[in-house]
Amino acid sequence: MPSHRESLAPELALELSDLAAATRQSAESAPAVLELLHRAGSFDAGFVSLFDPQDRRQLLLHSQGHSARVQQFLASPMLVDDFEQLSLLRAHQRPVQVNETISALDSVRGWWEFMRPAGFGRSVGLALTTADGRHLGNIGLQSITKQPPDDAYIELLHRLTRLVARVFDPLRTVSAISQLVTDAYAGTILTRPAEVIPLSGLPGDLLLAAGSPVLSTVAARLHDGLQMLTFLCPTSPGAQTLTRVTALACPPHPLGRLHSVVLLSPPPPRYGLTIRELQVLGLLVDGYSNNAVAAALNLAPRTAVAHVEHIMIKLAASSRTVAAVRALRQGLYLPADLHTTERRAAPR
């Protein structure tokens, strides 16, 4: 009944955008998505799988109503081959129907060897594609009936698929998190093997290129459960102008390759701190003693002490550690790793 489904569309669209906005893990959302699709049109079994383009494999996230034998197939590489044959690995592919009219080529082996013997009469495959064309994974809906679904149903599924893709997009929370730095002018995503992925909506920057000192600093310092890191960085090597770097740890994901979102934004008020004092703060943040600061920056011990005293006055801090912690929390320091020329001798 197409008219019935049309009235359902706003409700389903709304619930899907709520699912996409929730911060649940993909695996937890999968049953909810299938339940929602079930209301658009019934099926007897279904599964959600995520595609890992790097290893060209499918990660079975959730299945329901399937026997152990079928689940084995769903977790096997054979599934990827079937999807390939059915164009289901293609971006923006419309829903694909499989039923007994499909020729018995070994191209769609899974259907004939597993789904059909399990008693299913038809299967509808959905390709989950993001708005920017990334193939994220697939959903399969199996029914005992052999009757092909009507066009209106397929059209509704097609529309819903776009919204469903959003729920499973690993970059969704990441992009949402990046919105927290409201004045960011550049950004990138740092992955676990220290590569970079562009961040939707923000340009990249030379400072954020793969292997750059800024990204190495982030990788070295944002771990052990730290969620956020802010520091200052010269806009180019040796420059007197500074930019603010904010790194936000990516929440866990089944294909957990994302490390953090790294953003550049205009620097915060500096309380009159000089570049030298910001360098000293970078060392205090790392727990350097006054003597170690002097050694690291090639200063007379008395000069280092004077710097620390000035910093404490400017930050209205009652002790050097209070100053260091205040700097750490506001991102008011130049990390020692970024002015490499002068240190390394100091104890860490």
């Binding site: 929730a22 949402a176 998190i177 927290l180 740890a249 929440p251």
Partner: peptide, 10 residues
């Protein structure tokens, strides 16, 4: 946006 922010904390 606040909910997204909350996702920074596991």
């Amino acid at each position: 946006k606040l909910t997204a922010m909350a996702s920074l904390v596991a």
